[in-house]
Write a protein that binds this DNA or RNA. Structure first.
Lengths: 158, 158
DNA sequence: TATTGTTATACTCTATAACTATA
DNA sequence: TATAGTTATAGAGTATAACAATA
């Protein structure tokens, strides 16, 4: 197997959209929680980091502020997220999950994971290990980072 | 690293959307060709399989017929694809790339691949090999297949 | 003046349902 | 009657630009 950056990029470009299609389709199919991928990721981030600001979420998910604002608006309308203003800096939002939000996240996470897991059950342990390793390699490469972290990483890499 | 189907599914669910974001963003950034991911995939499929029908493309990309119809409509309007009726079965479309379509596909493919490759250049050959292997494992698992092929696979798997 | 967030606007993606044309 | 595709309609995701409120 070729290992040039170009060949690897080509593989990713071929396969990742296909996997993504399946994830979307399966999330849509679970009418219980019925979350889109961005909604799901937003809930997951707020769950990890309670009282995150809108900017925090937008940056981490990799969306613009207006896009994130709209997504959060929808989640608030569905009572999955609460939006409070920060006590001392009243420009900031403090986002948190409601009980319903936590349930929805849990339900969707498990249902989607179960569907994907079913698709993966036909593989060997060795194959799943390879996939897991690849994901762990890809994660930091494509995870958006704050400006500070980016600078730090650049400096470290020199 | 855990190798259960569930753990593997969780990894994919964490990482694939992040990679996808980057792919979309980079495709948008190349104003030369300016293709969305579905447009790109549609062009790529028609390039591989000239005179494909709309149903062929829809099934392979994993979209409904109306969705695919709309995407193709846009590509035809931009003169990247031609749409002719089949000689003997006049219900069928015969889709093909124009010269402009081939150029756009080539341009977009190379620009996006180059950007991804740049992100991957910091990895070791060994790491890229792992990614390549993982993609080759995932490809058949998530590639939509025709009904016949699905049946055949089910039978073989028994 | 800089930062945080929202509103306005516009486009693409995507689905379901209803329809047309052809076989 | 069944198949190939289009049209109608609706909603989500996304961006840029312009704006409002707060620091």
């Amino acid at each position: 197997m070729p290992t040039s950056p170009d060949a690897c990029a080509q593989e990713i470009l071929d396969v990742v959209p296909v996997v993504m299609r399946t994830i979307r389709a399966e999330m849509r199919r679970h009418r219980t929680a019925d979350l889109s991928v961005p909604q799901f990721r937003t809930l997951a981030f707020i769950d990890r980091q309670t009282d995150a600001s809108l900017s925090d979420v937008a940056e981490h998910i990799g969306l613009t502020l207006p896009s994130m604002s709209k997504i959060v608006e929808g989640l608030v309308a569905r009572k999955l997220v609460t939006r409070q203003t920060h006590a001392t800096d009243r420009r900031r939002m403090m986002l948190a999950l409601t009980a319903r939000g936590q349930t929805a996240l849990q339900t969707s996470r498990e249902a989607t994971r179960a569907c994907l897991a079913e698709d993966l059950a036909g593989l060997t342990e060795r194959q799943r290990e390879t996939i897991g390793q690849a994901m762990e390699i890809l994660r930091p490469v494509f995870t958006p980072q704050g400006e500070v972290e980016k600078q730090v990483r650049k400096i470290i890499e020199r």
